[in-house]
């Protein structure tokens, strides 16, 4: 009987995700404008991507993004979490505020940063310029556009990690901390030998998720720069979206989606292995 309980979830999931995903993989080998009959072109889409400069920019940007998010927000999150552990009093208050940007829609956060901070007309940036500082709008410069977007994402993201790391730090067995204290461990020794090893599974999991999420990033790029200027901030997901809905090159978009998924799949394998340990307990 219980077999039927899982049917609704599975039917919806298979119909919306699995079947279209398999179709996407198939579409990657076709030329299709979304209207006429698809034409089989073998590896044609992948060959075109290989020769496409924008594709390589997008892939590089995704990799830069991944490296950036593997270090900066995880670092800030860990630092803030340990500070909360030291401070203790008021930790709930700080956590709530740090978490706040996570519950606000990406579209809105993007517009706040765009208009109130980066804009040379209405933003803080414009004010600094009028005061004589040589600041630029990072979103309009090919060399800084990606960093400008990443800053917004970093700003809204690190608090989430802080909350997760703090929760994990509080699970570190009290006896280990006491023992280290009696041995006269300094704060850094405590971090290095007791606290960080104690939350290693959480850090590992967050790093795996960071890799997965870094290849999915879409909203902030699409809203802040649309991948511009001159494709300098293009990432794979915006490239796929534009190809499908603006250029009506659905086959090419599907090929890009397949590339994103290959990167995701490797990280997903690690993710499932980590989670499997949890289930076996």
């Amino acid at each position: 009987m219980h077999r039927f309980y899982v049917v609704p979830t599975l039917v919806i999931n298979v119909a919306i995700i699995l079947v279209p995903a398999l179709l996407t993989v198939a579409l990657a080998f076709f030329r299709w404008d979304g209207i006429n009959m698809p034409v089989f072109i073998g590896m044609g889409n992948f060959q075109a991507l290989w020769a496409d400069r924008v594709f390589w920019t997008a892939l590089t940007n995704n990799i830069i993004w991944t490296l950036l998010f593997l270090t900066v927000p995880i670092g800030i999150g860990l630092l803030a979490a340990t500070l909360l552990l030291v401070a203790r009093r008021g930790s709930m208050f700080f956590q709530v505020i740090y978490f706040l940007p996570m519950i606000i829609a990406t579209a809105i956060l993007a517009r706040i940063w765009q208009g109130m901070i980066y804009s040379p007309v209405s933003g803080v940036n414009g004010m600094l310029q009028r005061m004589g500082f040589p600041t630029l709008d990072p979103l309009t410069q090919p060399s800084t556009a990606l960093l400008g977007i990443a800053t917004v994402d970093l700003w809204h993201w690190w608090g989430f990690l802080c909350v997760i790391f703090f929760a994990a730090l509080r699970q570190v067995p009290q006896e280990q901390i006491e023992a280290a204290r009696i041995e006269g461990a300094s704060f850094w020794q405590m971090m290095r030998y007791v606290l960080l090893p104690g939350i290693r599974p959480t850090i590992t999991l967050m790093m795996i998720m960071t890799v997965i999420w870094s290849f999915l990033v879409f909203d902030f790029v699409y809203i802040l720069t649309q991948g511009g200027p001159a494709f300098s901030s293009e990432v794979l997901s915006t490239l796929a979206y534009r190809s499908a809905f603006y250029d009506l090159a659905v086959g090419k978009a599907a090929a890009v989606a397949v590339v994103i998924s290959i990167f995701g799949l490797i990280a997903t394998a690690f993710y499932i292995r980590e989670q499997a340990r949890e289930f076996d307990r």
């Binding site: 995903a21 996407t24 879409f218 978009a253 599907a254 995701g264 993710y271």
Partner: peptide
């Protein structure tokens, strides 16, 4: 089923968006 569901949480939206649309 659990692992299948876990795997779909990491699937990029673009992987199923276009045929779905």
């Amino acid at each position: 089923i659990t692992f299948y569901l876990l795997a779909t949480t990491t699937a990029p939206i673009q992987l199923f968006l276009f045929p779905l649309y």
